[in-house]
Design a protein around this nucleic acid. Structure first.
Lengths: 115, 115
DNA sequence: AAATACTGCAACCAAACGGTTGCATTTCTG
DNA sequence: CAGAAATGCAACCGTTTGGTTGCAGTATTT
């Protein structure tokens, strides 16, 4: 038995799903780009130059926060929000896992056919 | 003007969002793993060993289909569904873009600070 | 031709989502 | 201290989502 650790080590489908779901909204993706481009920002800062309300943005941030995609530290009366680099990496690695073992599957299939 | 192709070439936030949204559901992720492990399968095949209904699975497949994550070709009375490798790559590359230019941003910041 | 298997379509339902408005709270600033 | 700025909380609302059940339509199989 070859150490059946099924390598979805980032988390089960449940945890991964919440991560992708957090990325699965247009406005949230815009926030991601924004935070990446301009660095940590306050809610008001993010609201400026956005078509939606401050509260809408707050909600989006909360969604991303619960997926650990973003975190905030308070600084006086404003709180600065920033991306969690690691969590984005997690998402990437999860996709890698699918593709990688998939290639192996294709490899096995090829073997099987060519025998 | 340096050929302003802003490098989000996979598609704007809108298109990318639909892709991530398609991945942002636990049951759909399970289907992805299933299709990757066992290759192209029929709906009935996918339903076997799943807790949800055949019609629920159908709906999930349609969602993924509209995000071009999955496609089906009919074969007699059953239709076989398979993953679209390329589209998964797209998702990965999109995440890469965020991280990559992010590193550049950090680089710029470091420069700025160290000057 | 009759029974069986597989998919598609439609209606329906509760819950979640994305967004808004209004008001309260905390923290700076003049 | 009074006002302004930033966030938080809560209620509300229309639409989408994830799921179900029921029935109809096509292929196979016997």
């Amino acid at each position: 038995m070859p150490l059946r650790r099924n390598s979805k080590s980032i988390g089960g489908p449940k945890r991964a799903a919440s991560l992708f779901a957090a990325l699965g909204d247009e406005n949230r993706l815009r926030l991601v780009w924004r935070l990446r481009d301009d660095g940590p920002m306050s809610i008001t800062g993010l609201t400026a130059g956005s078509r939606i309300t401050r509260q809408a943005i707050t909600k989006h941030l909360r969604v991303m926060q619960q997926a650990h995609l973003v975190r905030s530290r308070r600084h006086g009366r404003e709180s600065l929000w920033q991306l969690d680099q690691q969590r984005l990496q997690d998402a990437r690695r999860y996709l890698d896992l699918i593709s990688k073992q998939w290639d192996q599957a294709l490899g096995r299939l090829r073997e099987f056919v060519e025998e």
